[in-house]
Amino acid sequence: MLSGIPALGSPLDPLYRPVTRVLREHLGLMPSHITWASLVPSLLAALTIARGHVGAGLWLMALGQLLDAFDGAMARHYHLASPEGHRLDTLVDRLSEAAIFLGFAVGGFVSLKLVLCALLAIALLTTVVDRAGFDPGAKRMALYFGHWFTYPTLFTVIFGVNLTAYVISLLVLDCRFQLLMDRLGGDLDTIATRGALAEAAEEAVHR
């Protein structure tokens, strides 16, 4: 549920431990099973919202996000965390968001254009979030505020926040690259070429 707020992920792990212990030690489930399972309530949430029942849909969405929190907690506790698991978690998160957001469009709560804008912005941020390390977490979470704000407003906020975070992330990566180029110094006319080579070499070392 709190995957959008990474800093809270680990401190809350002890709360999830009784459940993750049952899921792992008694049922023999792996984090990837939980990740895939979290997609089911999200798809049901999308269908429910598309049929006009936003309240029930949001409860199902919360269930999906709770399961999404269990997979990370289980992976960390049983040392099963892996890059593949992280990629799968991200993929399922994006699929869940796409389904739920489209549910809001089909249900007539918000225009398809706004939904597409929000999904595009989230997808763009996802492409750089691991490298830039910046994610404000304004995705599905924002939809819980539908009681106080209209859905077009909330989707506009999701679009604006994620697109802004994407642009900031690009600038963060640019600034890091600039620091690398400044360290290299020398002939500035070929600095980008030499910087690109140095960055590729650094990446190869880390791999």
Partner: peptide, 11 residues
């Protein structure tokens, strides 16, 4: 004055 300094960004 450092001519050719890399001023560009992805913006």
């Amino acid at each position: 004055n450092q001519k050719d300094y890399y001023w560009r960004s992805s913006l």
